[in-house]
């Protein structure tokens, strides 16, 4: 396999709430390789954004405690000073945010916002910066780049703005891109365009990508490898084909069964009962997903499930998945497979 660009080891991100620290990312380890798209998927509140912001060093350190390691280019990002980190952010690490309506400064022109990272990371004349910016705009599929260059964010549609946000992330040729729900706020057709664009760009620049999403459709279209997150923990990691063809963790299977386009029309969808617990209320002993599969009898759960490899490259945080069944599923019912092919 290609070289790793980012190695997260036992990362724990805790927030201070009324004097106590609660972990939103709880002992997560994950590696991203060159030219690899690793998707992180889970319901909202599972700690996906908290993870992304930890890598980028964007948490407010007064209220956030970061433990573990985020190794990038043989240094631990978590122990770098702000000024050292600023030499890496925007250069080697690029970030794409969820909402293109709010991710751009309303008072600066598009051109200025794309050039800004170059101010800090590249020694370029202003003419060279402009040239590069226009080129970037073309690369993200904007045709009238000369005009867009001097326009303001509010003059562009959501899809156009998201292209600009991508151009900013790519401005200094990053080796790792972190995209936090890059298509969630977009219309279906625009989502498809942005997905195709990101795939195409990745083909060109061969960077690693961490793609955060709650949409398994986006995962299926884009990811090479998938980490499923629940309540701050990774509960399953697998290659994308393996995950969709052979999902093992009950949470992964529940997610797949709740997607309308994945189920037979008009058939009842699987409902994951309850909600993702808040970080204060989360019970951190035993299996965190147990309260949401109430029909599974107590003795069938594992006491403290750990992530272990069940097949090469396929990790699951549960050993009792073999016995797991949905309440509506008859034992041995072959028609009830998780993916409809």
């Amino acid at each position: 396999m290609a070289n790793p660009v980012l190695e997260i080891k036992n990362l724990r991100t805790s927030f201070n709430i009324k004097g106590n620290y609660y972990a939103a990312v709880d002992d997560v380890s994950l590696t991203v390789h060159e030219n690899e798209v690793v998707a992180i998927v889970g319901e909202s509140g599972c700690g996906k954004s908290a993870l992304a912001l930890s890598i980028m060093g964007l948490h407010n350190l007064k209220t956030t405690k970061l433990e573990g390691q985020v190794n990038f280019k043989s240094q631990n990002l978590l122990s770098l000073s702000a000024s050292k980190l600023n030499k890496i952010r925007g250069k080697d690490l690029g970030m794409i945010f969820q909402d293109p309506m709010t991710a751009l400064n309303p008072l600066a022109t598009i051109g200025r916002q794309i050039e800004e990272p170059m101010d800090y990371h590249m020694k370029l004349s202003s003419a060279a910066k402009k040239k590069r910016t226009l080129e970037l705009l073309r690369r993200v599929g904007i045709k009238n780049e000369q005009r867009i260059y001097s326009q303001y964010p509010h003059e562009l549609s959501g899809g156009m703005r998201q292209r600009v946000v991508i151009a900013i992330a790519l401005a200094c040729d990053p080796v790792l891109l972190i995209a936090d729900e890059p298509t969630t706020a977009l219309d279906v057709t625009i989502q498809a365009q942005i997905m195709d664009l990101m795939k195409e760009l990745q083909n060109q620049i061969k960077s690693g990508i961490i793609l955060i999403t709650h949409d398994l459709g986006v995962v299926a279209e884009m990811a090479d490898r998938v980490a499923v997150m629940y309540a701050g923990e990774v509960v399953e990691i697998a290659e994308v084909r393996e995950l969709f063809m052979n999902p093992l963790h009950p949470y992964t299977r529940s997610l797949l069964n709740s997607i309308p386009s994945n189920m037979e029309d008009k058939k009842a969808l699987h409902v994951i009962e309850g909600i993702v617990p808040s970080i204060q209320k989360l019970d951190r002993t035993g299996c965190r997903f147990a309260p949401r599969v109430a029909w599974v009898p107590e003795h069938e759960h594992e006491e403290s499930p750990t992530l272990h490899e069940v097949e090469p490259g396929h990790f699951v945080r549960c050993t009792c998945y073999k016995n797991f069944h949905f309440p509506e599923e008859k034992v041995g019912d072959e028609s009830y497979v998780t993916t409809k092919s």
């Binding site: 279906v188 057709t189 989502q191 498809a192 997905m195 195709d196 795939k199 949409d215 398994l216 459709g217 986006v218 299926a220 279209e221 884009m222 990811a223 994308v240 084909r241 969709f244 997607i259 386009s261 994945n262 993916t339 092919s341």
Partner: peptide, 23 residues
């Protein structure tokens, strides 16, 4: 056709097919 082609493909094996269809 364009709208329907924009629905993400749930089968990872077919993603390139889908991308080419969209193109």
């Amino acid at each position: 056709k364009r709208l329907i082609a924009a629905i993400p493909e749930m089968n990872p094996e077919k993603r390139f097919e889908k991308m080419h269809l969209r193109q």
